[in-house]
Structures are given as structure tokens and as C-alpha cells.
Amino acid sequence: MNNPYLPKLATIEKVKTETYDTTTFTLRLDDPEERKAFQHRPGQFVELSVFGAGEAPFCIASSGHGRDTFDLSVRKVGHVTGALHEMGEGGQVGIRGPLGNSFPFEEVAGKHILFVGGGIGLFPLRPQIQEVCREADRFAAITVLYGARTPEDLVYREELDRWQQQEGMTCLLTVDTASDGWTGNVGVVGTLLTKIEIDVSNAVAFVCGPPIMIRFVVQDLSNMGFGENAIVTTLERHMRCGIGKCNHCMIGDKWVCKDGPVFTYGQMREMTEFEE
């Protein structure tokens, strides 16, 4: 029997510091067969083992298109992430996945795609942004709105620059609190919604960020006329097994790990435990 708890070995190819507490690790599965089989879609996640410390879930932060490596962007918050941050290039880790469902792609072709990210909520959005950008001509328009607490908290700085310059794409940034040298917008990310033009009847919004930010942005989007199912987000929960067995991530009758992590706002409202 296939053992879904058995991690595949992978090696850290590259370590890139994003901010003072976040890092992007580029990983490559050791076994060529496993590498080939590792097909993932935006929105999916993996369970990463830091041997000796434990296992934790991380969203895949890169599009799988045209590369046999993948990125995990990680904030140092706990035991496993702390141990991972101690590791350097060449270090060996374990990977289970890809796990969970993914963002809709074909279903949203032809629409204006709006991404709203807060803080490290840009991590799970990044692969979808990359894929949408790659096939930009299949979409009506692409808008990325991104906010962080301070300029020092903005992740993927170079990519943000590229997105800001890319034709046919709008990318606006904001910070809650400006620091020296910041000349951009100041305010929560929701305030950027007033600065864009969008035909809500043909648009879909992908929203990721801390729970409080999601709550307010979803409210703003609803007020603008976005339908429940035109708002898509990923949920975060404490996860152990990643395959719908341990029940830690259960919300109502759903497992975030198996039935999600991608849900529409409409699906979330149906969950008995969902709090608006």
C-alpha cells in the first residue's frame, strides 16, 4: 500500500531572504521519478519535514510551469520553521504532497482577475499570479493589490517591481505604517480597492491574508458587488496529517487540508463554524 505519510527526500537548492522573518526556500526532490511525478497546481500545499524537528504544512509559492524545483516561502514562527531557518543550501528535508485542492483557472478564463494579498498572504497567491501572467492574453485584466504592515514586511520585492511594470497588469502596494523613504500608499489593503476600475460582473477576486484582513476585504468586495462565488480564498488551519485523517484542520464538515485549502466565500459561509 502506498504510504501517504512517508516523506520524499528533497534538497534545499537555494535560500533567499525575503524580509527580516521570512525566507524563500527553493527545493528539488532528490529522486528523478518522484520529481517527474510531482505535478502541482496553484493553491496546493506540501507537508515539509525538518528531520529531528517535525513536520508542518506550507503552501507551494511558485508555479510548476517549466521548472523541476518549487519554492516554499516561510515565516519563522514555531519549532519547525525555526529549525528550517537554521538549514542552508544542500540541506535535506522531507516532502509530502502536493496536497489539497487548487485555485480555479480554466473556470475564470476571460475574466478580470483581482488578487488581494495581505502580508505573507502573497505566498499562496504567487503561483496563481505567475500562471495568470504567463497566459495574460486569456484574461480580461490582471490586478494585484498588496499590503503589508510596514515597507519592511513586503515580500517578493523584485517580482512586485516586475508586476508593476508589466503591460496589461496593475499592481498597487500599500503599507499600514510607513517608514522612512516610503512614498507609496499608506492604509490597509482594502483602501486600494477604491483606486482601481473593475467590472465586477466579469471579475473574480483571489484574497489571502490574515483572518482580520480577509474579513474586511471580503466585506468591501461584497459591497462592490462581487458575488459569493467570485471571491476565492485559501484558509489556514493547524494541520498535522494533510490528508483528512487527524481532523485538526476540520471546520464544520470540511477538512481544510483535503476539501480545501481553496474555498469560495460562498462555500465558507455554508460552513457551520464560519464566523463573519
Binding site: 529531528g52 524537528a53 517535525g54 513536520e55 498535522r240 496529517c241 485523517k245 487527524c246 481532523n247
Partner: peptide, 10 residues
């Protein structure tokens, strides 16, 4: 009831 948690020990 079958909830479980997973830990690593060295």
C-alpha cells in the same frame, strides 16, 4: 473518536 497528533522525537 480518532483524532491524532504527530510528533518527532530524537
Amino acid at each position: 473518536c480518532s483524532c491524532f497528533t504527530v510528533t518527532d522525537r530524537m
